[in-house]
Design a protein around this nucleic acid. Structure first.
Length: 374
DNA sequence: GAACCGTGGTG
DNA sequence: TCACCAAGGTT
């Protein structure tokens, strides 16, 4: 096994890689909405949405987003609530907040033009090494190699490197190797070709080496077991929490919602108030306690409403929702966490997390069938 | 360096 | 069913 520091692309390897990859890409590239434009702003939007998110998931979100905000200026002038509503369901909501902030920064500091300089674009919130290289290469054809999960897998196989891809040192060398393979004349196409190869041919399990255009340049293929690359460390156990939330109705049939703090999990989204149950605590008691602590009201639990399981990025929950009535107190808006009474029909105007959306769907279902509302 | 940050598809 | 993981970035 070669050491990372001595690993390098040979001339023959580059020759067997660059040309065949580009030919394959020209013949096989998939159609994507953001490939119909040369607008650096739209390419930027697409790359933010594509972070840790599949192409097929992004397509529709992208279309709606650039229709609502055709230019950097339009996005900069938008309200955060409007941006988050368009991001609802896509996940990693800090991406939307950062993109919104960065658009205002581009208007303020760059006259509304996406920077072409690496350090300048890296200064924008939400743009790291990958996105900077992606936008610069695709929008401006600047020769920066991208290193995403696909490229990491391709590089680890081409060079048969068993280095841990979670380590910064490994990524530094893999980025260098990707740069050695890069076609400097067609940087944007080359980067997209690398990612598309990883997504469609050089897949994590059972790669299609028989259809691979760079088979002859691949050391892992020569070894016979490309699936053993890349090497990743074993994952840790995922924690589980029980969550109690209250569907609190007032006398007019409106329901109480609260916006989450800007930072952290689901930041800036609206939700039904509630929180984590304590060890051994009954869920209805947890609901009463949380509503007292979070919004300063006394409520009575009418009935269990719905229970669901949900997985977040690094923990899992079981969510217990209860139908509640306001007994005493006026809901108080904590700092940065405004509350609002909303008609069920108007809940669609707000951005909610998925788990809450499931509750809303159930609410709407039972409103159409009042008999289901015990 | 490592924890944190969503969601849906996949085998 | 459930662990894995996808065009990563921030703190």
């Amino acid at each position: 096994m070669a050491e990372l520091d001595t690993l390098a692309a040979t001339d023959s390897q580059i020759a067997a890689f660059r040309g065949p990859l580009m030919e394959w890409y020209d013949e096989n590239k998939r159609e994507m909405p953001w490939r119909k434009t040369g607008d650096p702003y739209r390419i930027w939007v697409s790359e933010i949405m594509l972070q840790q998110t599949r192409v097929d998931t992004v397509r529709e979100y992208y279309r709606r987003f650039v229709k609502a905000f055709p230019t950097v200026g339009d996005l900069a002038n938008a309200e955060q609530d409007e941006v988050l509503k368009l991001w609802e369901g896509l996940g990693y909501y800090s991406r939307a907040r950062y993109l919104h902030d960065a658009a205002q920064q581009v208007v303020r500091e760059h006259e509304g033009t996406v920077p072409r300089d690496y350090d300048d674009i890296r200064d924008l919130k939400g743009i790291g090494p990958y996105t900077a290289a992606a936008v610069l290469s695709i929008a401006y054809n600047e020769p920066h190699p991208v290193l995403d999960g696909n490229v990491m897998r391709v590089v680890s196989r081409v060079f048969a490197s068993d280095a841990n891809i979670k380590k910064a040192k490994t990524q530094r060398h893999f980025r260098r190797l990707a740069g050695e393979l890069l076609d400097p004349e067609r940087a944007g196409d080359f980067n997209q070709a690398m990612m598309e190869l990883g997504a469609t041919i050089c897949t994590p399990t059972s790669p299609s080496c028989g259809r691979c255009p760079v088979q002859d340049a691949c050391a892992a293929y020569a070894e016979g077991e490309p699936e053993q690359y890349p090497v990743t460390p074993e994952s840790k156990p995922v924690p589980h929490h029980d969550i109690a939330v209250g569907l609190v109705f007032d006398d007019d049939g409106r329901i109480l919602i609260q916006r989450r703090p800007e930072d952290g999990l689901l930041g800036g989204l609206w939700e039904f108030p509630g929180g984590k149950a304590e060890e051994g605590e009954e869920m209805d008691k947890a609901c009463i306690r949380e509503l007292r602590e979070e919004v300063g009201i006394d409520i009575e639990v009418d009935a269990p409403f719905y229970t669901l399981s949900h997985a977040y990025s690094h923990f899992k929950i079981t969510l217990y929702a209860f139908r509640c009535r306001l007994i005493d107190g006026e809901p108080t808006s904590e700092e940065g966490q405004p509350i609002r009474w909303v008609k069920v029909a108007d809940l669609d105007e707000y951005a909610f997390p998925r788990a809450n959306r499931k509750l809303i769907e159930e609410l709407e279902r039972r409103q159409e069938e009042p008999s289901l509302f015990d």
